[in-house]
Amino acid sequence: MTVKRVKGRWHNVFLVIRYLLMTLLGVVFFFPILFMVVSSFKPDLQILQDTSSLRAFLPVGELSFQNYVEAFERAPTERFILNSLLVTSITVILGLVVNSMAAFALSILRWRGQGVVLSIIIATFIVPFETIAIPLLLLVSRLPWIGADGIVFGWLNSYHVQIIPFIANAFSIFLFVQFFKSLPFELVEAARIDGAGWFQIYRRIIIPVSGPVFATVAILTFLPMWNQYLWPIMVVQQEEYRPVMVGLQYFFQLNVAWGEIMAYLSTITVPVLVLFLALQRAFIESIASSGIKG
């Protein structure tokens, strides 16, 4: 739409140029990922030799699942994937509930202090996790938890230590607030006059019309949680709780084998890519919606 409509031959020339450009860019964005997946099926030596030609991107030569077999032997990969899925999905779901509720209170309701609270929440957006990791470690190692054996102190070696600190998220709250503010207030007003309670309004009126922003927040929470790396190294000592990114380190001590590494990288990346492709439109549309109101 943004490009001037040109009739006739020139139109076709422009079209060809545009497609050429798009294809070239597509190669740049796609080939590294393609290289990773293709290499995961090749023996180490061939990966190195193939880098000197286009064969690097083609599934040719000696192809096998050998790298995958070895990667799964070297690290309990399936366990790590399951752990990451568990931690990620619970965080996403709890995050949706907690953050949307807070945003509802901050944007639809009116109460003294909400302005200050919102400003503080938005200000925390600039704190990178790396800078508070150590104080946070000191803190969680002393927090109580009610487990099977009664109250225990210290949150290390568990799923909850990987989940709870990441549920509330300033950016998520911000996105929800922006979206809720854009909703027509008549919806709320009408329900209120009908005698609905605030919580009912949140559940029956607001949530059903907020699909896009819920999807956005879900996706924006999913990606960083799946990629957790520094925090699990610090708080998880037992293999049974480790997530996928820590598992990566199993491949970088002795016997560095690129084939195995590529196989492991593909194993932890391809499922996310497939999920993305399957839900591609929802994915892109929902992220897009975060920008409109920005």
């Binding site: 470690l137 000191l138 190692s141 290390l156 190294i233 610090m234 708080v235 000592q237």
Partner: peptide, 11 residues
């Protein structure tokens, strides 16, 4: 790093 973190946490 894991050991130091565990030591910090008394674990």
């Amino acid at each position: 790093e894991s050991i130091v973190a565990a030591a910090l946490a008394g674990n």
